[in-house]
């Protein structure tokens, strides 16, 4: 029989590999020139989509814990959160390194004209301190302030949805789906918060 500790470690490895799979597949497609007519866009949107998906999964873990009354979802919070950041970082790097070709000229011309790019950069800046303070050590030393800081992830979820919404031309279904999921998850947290407050 496996010990409980080994079992959870094994599950974590599996989840890690699964979460890394979209990155590996996109990288493989890039190496073999299988990204289609607009390869940068495929990479850029691919990483962006996965950043949003992991953000949603990460935000769903605590509500899942509350609803299921199980403690296991908490075990994956850090990993999933860091994967959301990892895909957001890849999304950002594809934009800066490949789309803008590291050109300051292009950055100066394209970024200020574009509200959705600015919203994307804001989202990235919101996620950055969360990734930096994600270690156990930081969590301990920040104490209660850590929770406050990390509630910023909801703001990042909303700005990420707006970033996507402002990009599309006419078909708002996908960005609205993400915005809807994030809003529902946020509403659950607020409801739970108010309930606790009234009870005490």
């Amino acid at each position: 029989m496996l010990s409980l500790k080994t079992k959870w470690a094994a599950i974590k490895v599996i989840v890690f590999v699964l979460a890394l799979t979209p990155f590996l597949l996109l990288t493989k497609a890039a190496i073999y020139d299988q990204l289609g007519a607009n390869p940068i866009e495929t990479l850029h949107f691919g990483f962006g989509d996965w950043a949003l998906r992991f953000l949603c999964i990460g935000l769903a873990l605590t509500p899942l814990k509350i609803i299921s009354k199980q403690s296991w979802p908490t075990r994956f919070r850090r990993m999933i959160g860091l994967f959301a950041f990892f895909y957001a970082l890849m999304h950002f790097l594809v934009f800066i390194v490949l789309d803008l070709s590291l050109s300051w000229e292009a950055f100066k011309d394209e970024v200020p004209k574009s509200p959705y790019i600015l919203m994307g950069l804001l989202t990235f800046l919101l996620l950055l301190p969360l990734a930096v303070t994600s270690t156990k050590k930081m969590q301990k030393s920040l104490g209660r302030r850590w929770l406050k800081l990390h509630s910023l992830v909801y703001v990042a979820g909303l700005t990420a949805s707006i970033h996507y919404l402002w990009l599309v031309k006419a078909d708002y279904s996908e960005p609205l789906l993400y915005a809807g999921i994030i809003s529902v998850l946020l509403a659950i947290r607020i409801a739970v918060y108010w309930r606790k407050k009234y009870k005490t």
Partner: peptide, 12 residues
């Protein structure tokens, strides 16, 4: 109104 038109990505 939402993006620059000064450059274009050449397909392929």
């Amino acid at each position: 109104p939402r993006w620059s038109q000064s450059r274009e990505r050449v397909l392929g």
